[in-house]
Design a protein around this nucleic acid. Structure first.
Lengths: 248, 248
DNA sequence: TATCGTCATTGATACAGATCAAGCGCGCGA
DNA sequence: TCGCGCGCTTGATCTGTATCAATGACGATA
């Protein structure tokens, strides 16, 4: 529900900072012209709901800037975040009529949107897009399952370390990995949002973050800026298998 | 690692009890001939590991009979089941080289397998298969995310009710829903397997199951056979939104 | 029929994390 | 500059589930 033509929004794929990873990476093919026709950018303020669960979805797209979250709630208010959407992540289910979860802008967000129907038509015409989508969906599935282990079996401290580790890793990949040396990033989530992601209360999140700080695993500047002096140490705290991580 | 030609294994799609839902449902197309060439059936005993995490995958396929589970373990032994594979569920990741999780036969299992490479080739040639796979993967993703809510926010009692409710529902759909009246089914999981699925200990599982029995939500015959006199009551115990359930 | 092994139940106790309750710090609008 | 609200921290206490430890039920095997 935001202005669709704000002056600072990207105009086309060349301005799109995520073209190296997301669907619009394919813009270099001859489908470019068609893609541009059905594509637009849109921005949302922190706290705004981008999509309501159950609503008819009129677009699919990628997060270009900012952080959004996929959220599921029970009647009594208990809330579980089921996905963290960082820049380059895809939103929407081609072939599905309605949204299954709320999508909420956690920070200010810029989305790269494709109108759904023409996007699906193009998908039918262009096999590599369907394959790319399958690949991305499998990635999401892996992420969801990794998170099931976190939610089901890890302690509060391990949960926090897991979250920090994921955010740090994502941050580095997006900024073209400057491997060694301390990593730094800003937490894009409030303590409450972290709690909803981790299946904890915000008090426990606060206590464990400060415990990790006391123990020298992380350093905090203010309440949101995190420095990780030794990523391996953090990964160890997260209980991750210490095989270095990356596969293939 | 089991005989591939046991006399009781299905021979082709006409014998395959799940053709209405899984990939081989497409056998009716002119791809049938090619599919038959690359397809075979295989059986596993309860407890056998069908695929080891990290192994090269040589096939994809569907569960035809029995129950298998996708499992992830930490170094110290903590274990989380990340997927429950019931008949008609698909196993394997087209486009991925190695398996991400252990696949373990929980009961005796019959799989309908396709050799991976030719299956992938066929996928490239046959767009509707890629689309069917995307659809199935999206279903799995939804299931995984629903389970994240269970793991992150539900109480032990709600977790048990959720699991029973899922199994009951699946059982009915497969057996062509005889809607009303008490539902009955056998638990295909030990208490320990349930615990690993729910992020609990086996003692807690045992206590909560018996609590549900005491409260009349379910009835137990022996240790494994469950009768659900009132499914809505069970769904309520699971904390599910009481909108009847099905979408679309 | 005795014995063993696996799966499940049940009880006593410990503890991680939830809950309840202040209070702090900082940005923002008046 | 003052208050006000929101995000966060910190403390005290409570509780749901884990943990530890027997015991029971049943099927398989000899």
């Amino acid at each position: 529900m935001q202005n669709m033509t704000a002056p600072d929004l990207p105009r086309n794929c060349d301005d799109c900072p995520i073209r190296h990873r997301a669907v619009c990476a394919r813009c270099e093919t001859d489908e470019l012209a068609r893609l541009e026709e059905i594509k637009y950018y849109r921005s949302y303020e922190a706290g705004q709901t981008i999509v309501w669960s159950g609503d008819r979805m009129e677009f699919v797209g990628s997060v270009v800037k900012g952080v959004a979250s996929l959220t599921q709630a029970m009647e009594d208010g208990r809330t579980q975040m089921v996905g963290l959407l960082l820049p380059s992540d895809f939103v929407g289910r081609p072939g599905r009529e309605t949204a299954a979860y709320d999508v909420v802008a956690t920070t200010g967000v810029v989305m790269c949107c494709f109108r759904k129907k023409p996007f699906e038509d193009m998908m039918l015409r262009t096999p590599h897009i369907a394959q790319r989508l399958l690949e991305m969906t499998l990635d999401e599935l892996d992420a969801a399952r990794e998170w099931m282990l976190v939610l089901g079996r890890k302690t509060a401290r391990e949960k926090i370390a897991s979250l920090l580790s994921i955010i740090a890793r994502r941050d580095v990949t997006l900024n073209l990995g400057k491997a060694a040396g301390p990593m730094e990033f800003d937490l894009p989530l409030t303590r409450e949002a972290m709690a909803d992601y981790l299946g904890l209360t915000l008090e426990t999140v606060s206590r464990q973050i400060n415990a990790l700080k006391r123990d020298g695993v992380i350093d905090l500047t203010g309440k949101r800026h995190v420095t990780v002096p030794d990523f391996d140490r953090l990964a160890e705290e997260a209980g991750d298998d210490s095989d270095g991580g990356m596969l293939s």
